[in-house]
């Protein structure tokens, strides 16, 4: 059998990825996670002295703490299998990537194991996050200098 022929056969039998269904589930689960995040935001605003400007930090730490617990108990993995991008894109997914790598490499020691591998998955998020932030800031700086927008 030729490679071309085989590719056809393989494609026919392999079930197609249900992109629509995956996107819908991701949309709803991601939405639910963000709603929980928003509820936590209001919780901090109402019960503590945080304004909308300052409430981001405690909210993010709380969400990451929750994601840490779920990761450690093996529940985030199950959520990830169900939700896909829905649980990977919010900040909890970032927490999951960092924490799961730390747990995984705990056996290789604290410095080389955890220290060296903790950003194994999340490292690229940090790199491209910083890089894209730089370029967005650069674009805005240019626009402000020209006078199109204000800071």
């Amino acid at each position: 059998m030729e490679q071309e022929q085989y590719k056809n056969l393989e494609q026919q039998i392999t079930p197609p990825t249900p992109y629509m269904k995956n996107a819908l589930i991701a949309f709803f689960v991601g939405g639910i996670i963000c709603t929980i995040g928003h509820a936590i935001t209001y919780f901090y605003i109402i019960f503590f002295d945080f304004t909308e400007k300052t409430v981001g930090n405690p909210t993010v730490s709380t969400m990451i703490f929750l994601s840490m617990l779920l990761t450690g108990f093996g529940l985030y993995k199950k959520l990830g299998q169900f939700a896909g991008a829905g649980s990977a894109v919010p900040v909890t997914g970032f927490g999951n990537a960092v924490i799961s790598a730390a747990i995984e490499h705990r056996t290789e020691g604290v410095v080389l194991g955890i220290g060296g591998n903790i950003f194994k998955l999340a490292g690229s998020v940090i790199l491209f996050g910083v890089a894209s932030a730089f370029f967005v800031a650069l674009i805005k700086l240019i626009l402000v200098t020209i006078g199109v927008v204000q800071w």
Binding site: Y76, K77, G80
Partner: peptide, 12 residues
């Protein structure tokens, strides 16, 4: 991936 990482695996 790490064992506790929540990635979606395809049906295959």
């Amino acid at each position: 991936y790490p064992n506790y990482y929540g990635a979606k695996k395809p049906a295959t």
